[in-house]
Simulated scan of single mutants.
Amino acid sequence: MSLKERLAREIALTGPMTVADYVTRCLHDPKDGYYAARPAQGAILGEGGDFITAPLVSQMFGELIGLWAVETWQRLGAPEQFRFVEVGPGDGTLMADALRAARVAPGFLEACDLILIEPSGPLRTVQERRLGQADVSPRWVRSLTQIDTDAPVILIANEVLDCLPARQFVRTDGGWAERRVGVTDEGGLTFGLVGISGGFDKPPYEVETGQVIEISEQQAGFGRDLGALVAETSGAALLIDYGRDRPGAGDTLQGLRRHAKVDVLAEPGEADLTQWADFPAVLEAAVRTGADVTGCLSQGEFLRRLGIEARAERLSSGRPEAAPVIARQLARLTAADQMGELFKAAAIFAPRSLSVPGFEG
């Protein structure tokens, strides 16, 4: 029985499913979920997969993140031990590039306890192969709460928040309703609205009739856990994702397969489903735990502050024949009409006196 058939049967028995629960099942169902089954069948990342992430666009991205981590470590006083954590490491490319760049800093790699947080077994296998010859051997845990708190933490989370789904609510002429996934008479999946009788906090901004708002308990929970970890240990967590840097309405649920948008209900488990990161909610949850946060920068501005243009120039000088490709990679990462504006960067940090690289001023 396919995942779609199993979901339809479950909904028929128990009632319409929230969008957040539906996305979670599509991505993480142990048997047929996208991240449980697809990596074992073939690549999901890169030109030959379903989508491409910044580390796969150019080595410059991971190298700059590695140098960001080095600078953060130095500003923390170069502790003799720290936890270097990546959440959702993909195929390991970002971390491989970061560790290579970090060789320039004496003592950094020797002090590094490398931890990867990855719930997908097949992806852990891919990461293990990619990092098999790295300067530091990684170890894997399943959640932030499994990280020891006896040393500072420097954490990277690139395109993680968009995998943490949100429930969807719609303002109607008759009041607020929740958008849920139901079943048609023919056994197909469909969206519908369920009235809300109570327990719903209206958004603190204007929403027109018919508009959708998204509330992600999982994203807020991630911000809370991350803030608590950083507040207890000291250090900094860098979040880079596509999404909103201010509260607002909008249906951002989408499915991607072979780099094209697909119907999110058509083939559960066969496409990557994402929703925008809600940076305001994540950062607010972190602040409530005692951590400090930066504001949001566009990815383009953040990378420029880290020196990506100078890095591109050096790479082009050393390999003139590759200069046109490097220029296209630079534009892909920083241009306003590509990844530069849609993607945002922000940091959660402690103590308050720490100046986080890239966010000064």
Rank of each mutant, 00 (worst) to 15 (best):
D29M: 02
Y35I: 06
E63R: 09
E47W: 07
P30M: 01
L67N: 01
E63G: 03
M60F: 12
A43H: 08
D50C: 00
G77A: 11
R38M: 15
A54G: 02
P79H: 12
L56T: 03
A40D: 10
I44V: 15
F51Y: 15
C26D: 13
A54R: 02
I52F: 04
A43N: 11
G49F: 12
Q41H: 12
D50Y: 14
G62N: 06
R75Q: 04
C26T: 12
G48R: 10
W68N: 03
G42H: 09
P30V: 00
F51T: 09
A54Y: 07
Q41P: 05
Q74A: 14
Q74W: 04
G66W: 02
S58I: 07
L67I: 06
Q59Y: 05
D32A: 15
E47H: 13
E71R: 14
A40Y: 06
P55E: 01
L76S: 05
E63C: 05
L45K: 09
L27G: 09
Q81C: 10
Q81L: 08
K31W: 04
E47M: 12
E47S: 14
E47K: 15
L27W: 06
G62F: 07
Q74R: 15
G48Q: 11
I52K: 00
C26I: 07
A43Q: 13
A40L: 08
T72E: 07
E71F: 00
G42P: 01
I52S: 08
L67R: 14
E47Q: 15
A78C: 15
P55R: 07
P30C: 01
A69L: 13
G48A: 12
D32H: 14
P39Q: 04
R83S: 11
A78Y: 01
A40I: 05
L56S: 08
R75C: 00
C26E: 12
G66P: 07
W68H: 08
D29G: 06
D32L: 03
L64M: 13
K31F: 04
D32W: 09
A36Y: 00
